[in-house]
Computed example of a mutant assay.
Amino acid sequence: MPGQALPPPCTFLNVGQAFTGTQNVSSGQKDEAWKVNVRLQGCDIQKGYLCGSMEALNVPSAETPVVTFWEGEIVDNKNYTFFTGQWDATRDTDVNHWDKFPSFAALKEDVKRDGGRSVDLANYPFMFMRWKEKFFVNVGTDCGLTIAGFYYVCFSRSNGSVNGFYYDPNSSPYQKLELMATNEGRSGYSFATYKFQ
């Protein structure tokens, strides 16, 4: 098959899908975790794109939950590779962060060699992504938080779990994001797509 195949559709990557969990923002001085809710607002697998909102609750510096809008890149070797090439991320930064995911171990040598372009990610049980917060939705930039960095994300196709690490050279390193898909916003049953002749 010439070129890279696109990942197959995933029932957890649909507009309206919600995820809930925590982001550990602990530093040397304090142990802190925020409750986080994410909702997908858009998804175009063919273009390697998705976007959504992220709501952080119990943020000490904010009186209300903080909501941001983010855009994501799906590492598919067609639209995006494992190398970020922006947001102050070097190739070493990329490999060090991807390496935090156990599911990356089988890909590491290929990524170090050619950016992972030789790897067939279409049928890999995990999808790798970057999520970049673009703006605050409900608070001003003076809320005490920064969105200068971005998340390295590993998404499980089988159960909808999301694991991520926030990267910003000016923030606590390796802030861990752990989310699970929920049934919120979904009703009824979902079926695979069939075309009748």
Rank of each mutant, 00 (worst) to 15 (best):
residue 66 V to H: 07
residue 56 A to F: 10
residue 131 W to H: 01
residue 74 I to G: 01
residue 171 S to E: 11
residue 79 N to L: 06
residue 175 Q to H: 04
residue 64 T to R: 14
residue 28 G to I: 05
residue 120 D to F: 03
residue 130 R to N: 00
residue 100 K to E: 03
residue 95 V to H: 12
residue 46 Q to G: 09
residue 63 E to G: 06
residue 81 T to V: 09
residue 31 D to E: 14
residue 83 F to D: 06
residue 16 G to E: 11
residue 87 W to V: 05
residue 64 T to E: 09
residue 167 Y to A: 07
residue 100 K to P: 02
residue 14 N to G: 09
residue 49 Y to S: 05
residue 129 M to Y: 15
residue 77 N to M: 02
residue 28 G to S: 14
residue 105 A to I: 09
residue 181 A to K: 00
residue 55 E to T: 05
residue 73 E to K: 10
residue 131 W to M: 01
residue 59 V to Q: 07
residue 183 N to R: 11
residue 152 Y to E: 08
residue 82 F to N: 03
residue 187 S to I: 07
residue 150 F to P: 04
residue 169 P to Y: 15
residue 57 L to P: 01
residue 95 V to M: 15
residue 191 F to C: 08
residue 90 T to L: 09
residue 28 G to F: 12
residue 142 D to L: 09
residue 84 T to D: 07
residue 13 L to R: 07
residue 106 A to Q: 15
residue 154 C to I: 02
residue 24 N to P: 01
residue 166 Y to I: 00
residue 147 I to H: 13
residue 192 A to N: 15
residue 192 A to W: 04
residue 125 P to S: 06
residue 121 L to A: 03
residue 14 N to S: 13
residue 112 K to I: 07
residue 193 T to L: 05
residue 150 F to I: 00
residue 196 F to L: 00
residue 12 F to E: 08
residue 15 V to A: 12
residue 65 P to R: 12
residue 14 N to F: 00
residue 165 F to G: 09
residue 48 G to W: 08
residue 105 A to G: 01
residue 33 A to I: 02
residue 61 S to H: 02
residue 180 M to E: 13
residue 65 P to K: 08
residue 91 R to Y: 11
residue 123 N to I: 01
residue 32 E to I: 05
